[in-house]
Every structure is written in structure tokens, then in C-alpha cells.
């Protein structure tokens, strides 16, 4: 047994990881169960920031991610969109990543058009699309949105869009929500939007696991709430569902909680592998000392 683990081929590890992810996906998919979630303070803060806004507030949703991180960020983007819909907020979608526009289209098609067809484009939500320039875009739109966004993603002039009437810059937004997979992302929104206008722009965000440690220094003053990876998304999703879910919740609104299953088993495998690797290391070292 010891020799087997000592010379363990990496393909066995790959197989174990595959099973640890695939089996929970299958079981959760079949039995429609999720693990109980206990929302912590950061997810609760995100929920409260959105929930405490008066109905019909203006919310800017910046989807700065692409299909590579959809698995981690897609569920929180879904939950953000659903929460805004339930609160009747006006949603202004933008993207600083080239493929962010497709992420917005996904949210619009899967949630708004599929489940809330009564919401009208241009009156309840608008997709302003992608603009090149990274933090340069943020720097301009904090003072003059129309300088860059002369049209929406469909090519309609912003002057002709009802919900764009009177919107000059993003300081007029009641809240900015950013879903971030890296650069440009939450860090740039904090540095170029919140920091110059701390009293006018409020920001909450959701980000990938590797990004979260880098964003903690901005909490709580510049960033009152943060959803870190699928765990944060799961906590936030459970809060949204507890208040607005009702009965017979569609599976797409429980995606974050469902993905916690594979994550749990994969994390346990990682712990097992680290312990096994260390046991082998210490046994070998002991044998080496004896020799």
C-alpha cells in the first residue's frame, strides 16, 4: 500500500478528482438536494446593500468575466440579476471584458426573457455592452457616461432609450455591482470609481477565489460586501432564495448551492492527498535517517 502511494501515478489522482466532482454532480442533479448554507457577514452585507435600496433604484451591473470563469461566477451573476428584478431595480449592464457582453446576454436570455418577459428593454433594463479601455472606461464614465456610451449594445442611441434619460454619469447610480474575474475588475472599480467619489458611489462585488484575498484590504469602507467564489455565491443565493424564492424554485437559481457539493468532496480529496503525501514524506525521511 505504501509503495503504491509512493509511486502513485498522477493519472490516478486525476481519476479520483474526476470522480469526486462527477459523483456529487450526478447525485445532486438526481435528488435535487443541496447542503445547508450559513450566510456569513460579507454575503449578508451584499444582500442588504441591494435589498435596502428603495424599489426601482438604479443599479449598474458590470459583468467583467468570460466563459473561463463562468463556472465560478455565473451563479452569482444570476443571483444578482434575480435579486434586482425582485426589487424592481432598473438594471444597467456593462462589461469591461470583451466576452462580458456574452455573459450579459446569457443573463438576459436565461433569466429576464425566460422568466420575466414582462420586463421591457430600455425601460427596466439596458445592455450598454463592452467598451475597450479597461480602467480608462471607468475613469470616464464616473464623470461622463455619454462620452463613451453613445449607443447601447444593439446600436440604439442612448438618447432614445427611456431609462437613460437624465443619466449623465455613474455617480447617479444607487449601487454598482461588479462580477469580476481579474483585470479589469473589482480592484479597478474601487480605485477609479469608489475612491474618488466615496460619498456618491457604492460598490459591492463578487469575485473568483484567487482574487478575494487581494480585495479584503478594501473591506468595509470602499467595498462593503464581497462574494468570494462559489461559497460566497452560495451564501448570497441562499439569502435571496429565503426571501424571494417561494416554492418550486427553478434549478438555475440554486446553481451556486448545488456546486458546493462537488467543491466539498474535491476539498476533502485535496486534504486527503496532502495528508497522504506528508505521511509518505515522513516515513521516507525516517527510513533515510535509520539507514
Amino acid at each position: 500500500m505504501f509503495e503504491f502511494f509512493r509511486n502513485l501515478d498522477r493519472r490516478w489522482i486525476f481519476l479520483m478528482m474526476f470522480l469526486c466532482v462527477a459523483v456529487p454532480i450526478f447525485v445532486i442533479g438526481k435528488y435535487k438536494t443541496t447542503f445547508p448554507e450559513k450566510p456569513l457577514v460579507l454575503a449578508t452585507n451584499v444582500f442588504n446593500e441591494i435589498d435596502n435600496l428603495p424599489d426601482g433604484s438604479k443599479v449598474l451591473l458590470a459583468f467583467d468575466y468570460d466563459p473561463g470563469s463562468e463556472g465560478e461566477l455565473g451563479p452569482m451573476a444570476t443571483a444578482f440579476t434575480l435579486h434586482c428584478i425582485k426589487k424592481h431595480h432598473k438594471m444597467y449592464f456593462i462589461a469591461l471584458w470583451p466576452l462580458g457582453r456574452q455573459m450579459i446576454d446569457n443573463a438576459v436570455n436565461r433569466i429576464i426573457k425566460a422568466d420575466f418577459p414582462h420586463l421591457r428593454y430600455g425601460e427596466d433594463y439596458v445592455n450598454l455592452g463592452f467598451k475597450a479601455g479597461n480602467e480608462g472606461v471607468i475613469k470616464v464614465i464616473v464623470t461622463d457616461l455619454r462620452k463613451l456610451y453613445t449607443t447601447d449594445s444593439r446600436g440604439t442611441a442612448t438618447d432614445e432609450i427611456p431609462m437613460m434619460q437624465g443619466i449623465e454619469n455613474i455617480q447617479q447610480m444607487d449601487l454598482v455591482i461588479n462580477v469580476s474575474a481579474g483585470y479589469p475588475g473589482t480592484k479597478e472599480w474601487v480605485q477609479y470609481a469608489v475612491t474618488p467619489f466615496p460619498d456618491r458611489i457604492r460598490l459591492v462585488a463578487g469575485c473568483t477565489g484567487v482574487q478575494a484575498p487581494l480585495l479584503y484590504p478594501y473591506i468595509p469602507q470602499q467595498l462593503p460586501g464581497l462574494l468570494a467564489a462559489i461559497k460566497g455565491a452560495s451564501e448570497y443565493e441562499s439569502l435571496v432564495m429565503a426571501k424571494y424564492g417561494g416554492e418550486n424554485i427553478s434549478g438555475k437559481y440554486l446553481e451556486a448551492q448545488r456546486r458546493m457539493g462537488p467543491q466539498l468532496v474535491a476539498h476533502l480529496l485535496m486534504i486527503f492527498l496532502i495528508i497522504a503525501g506528508n505521511v509518505i514524506y515522513f516515513v521516507e525521511r525516517r527510513r533515510g535517517v535509520r539507514q
Partner: peptide, 8 residues
Amino acid sequence: FYVASAAF
């Protein structure tokens, strides 16, 4: 997969 292999 690679993180699991590296961890071991």
C-alpha cells in the same frame, strides 16, 4: 486536476 496532483 493539476492542483490536486501538485498538492500530493
